[in-house]
Nucleic acid binder design. Structure first.
Lengths: 111, 111
DNA sequence: GCTTACGGTAAGTCATGACTTACGCAACTG
DNA sequence: CAGTTGCGTAAGTCATGACTTACCGTAAGC
């Protein structure tokens, strides 16, 4: 329901295969719910619920258009997630390099 | 259990707050399970299970060291995930630009 | 006005997964 | 060779979330 961070909401949203399928179908542009559900193996209400989760995570934009609602991937939605992964990546590399340096020193204490 | 793609396994692994806490504690370098569990609000077996999930997702490296097992963030583990997000990001931007262009054309068909 | 498409919400079912305690096994330590 | 430490696994409980059908608004078309 409510998540501690935006990162958590986005990761949880992306972890579901149906929701990733929805995003995949939106890669080419906005779609209404009926078109979205037509290409998915689940019912339309299920798609609505997934769209809710994706919207709450900031990954989708909704634009009401007459009778329908167009859903589109939010540009910038995954920015925070990318930044999180980049930091994790950097720290992991630094820690790995540090551990390797330390291991090398223990193997040959002096040059 | 078994996931369709490595992306799915990594996203599922990262979606859990306890597992992200484990990764956070490994940012500075490798740790054995007992040290890892000492700073977390869950039992040690729970930590072991989370470590299994993270390892299966390719996010951790294990190096047996005598009696203990050192866990470390796998350098390169999040590479696929970063690539996935980058593609999603690029496609979303392209679709957004395309939609904006189309909307502008409909608003003012000729210059 | 009435009817039909579109889509969100309610309520209920069922599977999954996060956690616990209890146990088993390997490796240091006296 | 005991006893202890470190850690994985088994078994069971409980909450969550993904899905279904049924229902209710709202906008378009006759």
């Amino acid at each position: 329901m409510t998540y501690a961070t935006a990162i958590e909401a986005q990761l949880t949203a992306l972890a579901d295969p149906t929701r990733r399928a929805i995003l995949d179908r939106l890669r080419d542009g906005p779609l209404p719910v009926c078109d979205l559900a037509a290409g998915l193996p689940v019912s339309r209400p299920a798609v609505s619920q997934h769209l809710r989760v994706l919207s709450d995570a900031g990954l989708l934009l909704v634009t009401p258009l007459g009778n329908r609602r167009l859903y589109a991937i939010a540009p910038g939605g995954v920015q925070e997630l990318r930044a999180y992964l980049d930091r994790l990546w950097d720290d992991a590399l630094a820690a790995f390099a540090s551990a390797a340096r330390q291991a090398a020193q223990q193997q040959m204490p002096r040059e």
